[in-house]
Design a binder for these strands. Structure first.
Length: 427
DNA sequence: CCTCCACCGGAAAGCCGGGTCA
DNA sequence: TGACCCGGCTTTCCGGTGGAGG
């Protein structure tokens, strides 16, 4: 304590004590530019996407000649470079239009956050320099505003709707209106690019909207391991100092990500987290070991996040499974889990669901990868699900106890220790 | 080969909060 | 404003079933 005070005094006097950040800053340098590994980063060139870039550019080139480009639908799984490609081409298009002094602009909207038609239109109006409140106006008035803003001069507007499937689930009025907007314009032209990673969502779309929006279609195939290597190598050069990476790190990351449907995003995350772990450990090189740790960390983070988002009932259920696991059972049945669950519900003071429903919740947990369950028959002793909790227990437990509703459960497993679950179950 | 356990999982109806429309 | 609808969650009911033990 005294030491700390002395230190503070010294620091505040600007004395000889090193700044507390000094040691952190001077530890071995790993990252030159961490942002180069984020998904939001658009690199100078996009390896293995030249075909798609060219195709997209060919479709959009009329924009520079004062004509209306076709509307485009783009499909591809996550991390196949859809967004990056569109942003890249969009930037080049705007750049070229400036050179030619043509009015041509690209507006990018991500529909995941902007998920109602009002918000889409309002955001669009804002991007076009109109002042529209984020709430309050009738929707068609905002639409009018957007239309007038676009039509205010001779220009071509390319509207990119990323994750367009999110929008469709809430009714496709916006899409319908936007797809017909060209007919209502005198001076300007509008082209729409829809991006989706869900191929099936086409089925939910109004056929009129579909035919108008998908005049052109682009498919983005997943990357294979080799292509992922190139992408990682390119980004690693920007992100890390020279010689920081051991040679087998990139191929390893690429191989791991390729196993999971060639997701470049995942590969980049893996590399970045590996770097962060190496940095935290004070290592001066990133090794395969760091990647392994990163895999585990990402996995844990995912599970913890999934658990945190669970409805209360499922949280109690998971807590029950933790108790069972800690009491030494590696596998347990639906009946056992249900007994404990019933008990915990009483302790927590929430009402208890039927076994039928709990059975469904258990299936959901299985889907989420929080547990492993298989249906087995124990012959005479019935048919049931055999459940295994397949997560790092401590982090999950902490995540569960963060929920104030579960606070009565803190430390409860000690009082239940040794009690077989079925006997803990009364009435 | 049959029985019968302990649960699975489909069908259908009820409940509830939110949104819509006249 | 109230009638109405919708979708998600939950309960009720119930037929179905793999295989150890008889």
């Amino acid at each position: 304590m005294v030491k700390l005070l002395k230190m503070l005094v010294l620091l505040s006097c600007g004395g000889v004590m090193p700044n507390i950040f000094e040691s952190l800053m001077s530890s071995p340098k790993i990252f030159k530019n961490r942002d180069a590994l984020r998904h939001s980063y658009t690199p100078e060139t996009l390896p293995h996407r030249s075909e798609q870039i060219e195709e997209l550019a060919t479709i959009l080139v009329p924009a520079l000649k004062g004509e209306t480009p076709s509307n485009i639908f783009i499909y591809g799984k996550t991390g196949t470079g859809k967004t990056a490609t569109v942003k890249f081409v969009g930037r080049q298009l705007e750049e070229m239009s400036r050179k030619l002094s043509v009015h041509c602009y690209v507006h990018y909207l991500n529909c995941e956050r902007i998920d109602t038609q009002y918000r889409v239109l309002a955001t669009l109006a804002k991007a076009l320099g109109r002042n529209v409140p984020m709430t309050g106006w009738p929707t068609d008035q905002v639409y009018d505003e957007v239309r007038r803003a676009i039509d205010s001069r001779d220009q071509t507007i390319v509207i990119v709707l990323d994750e367009i499937d999110k929008l469709v689930r809430k009714g496709d009025d916006v899409l319908y209106n936007l797809s017909r907007i060209n007919g209502e314009l005198e001076n300007a032209r509008v082209s729409i690019i829809g991006i989706s990673n869900d191929l099936k969502f086409k089925n939910f779309l109004d056929p009129r909207v579909l035919s108008s929006l998908s005049e052109e279609e682009l498919i983005f195939p997943p990357y294979n391991a080799e292509q992922l290597q190139d992408i990682l190598a390119q980004r690693a050069e920007l992100a890390f100092y020279e010689g920081v990476l051991e040679e087998d790190v990139i191929p390893y990351c690429a191989a791991l990500a390729a196993q999971e449907h060639g997701d470049a995003r995942k590969a980049l995350d893996l590399l970045r987290v590996s770097g962060e772990i190496a940095e935290k450990e004070g290592a001066n090189k990133i090794t395969r070991e760091h990647v392994k740790k990163a895999v585990r960390k990402i996995e844990t983070d995912y599970v913890v996040e999934a658990v945190r988002m669970l409805p209360t009932q499922s949280k109690v259920l998971v807590y029950g499974m933790i108790i069972l696991t800690e009491s030494g059972l590696r596998k347990f049945t639906t009946g056992e889990v249900y007994a404990i669950y019933k008990n915990l519900c009483k302790k927590v003071g929430i009402d208890c669901l039927t076994q039928r429903r709990v059975s469904d919740l258990i299936s959901e947990l299985d889907m989420l990868g929080i547990i492993n369950s298989i249906i087995i028959s124990k012959g005479r002793y019935g048919r049931t699900r055999e459940i295994k909790l397949d997560v790092p227990i401590e982090p999950v437990k902490n995540a569960l106890l963060e929920d104030y509703r579960l606070s009565p459960l803190a430390g409860i497993e000690k009082s239940m220790k040794g009690i077989p679950p079925l006997e803990a179950f009364e009435t």
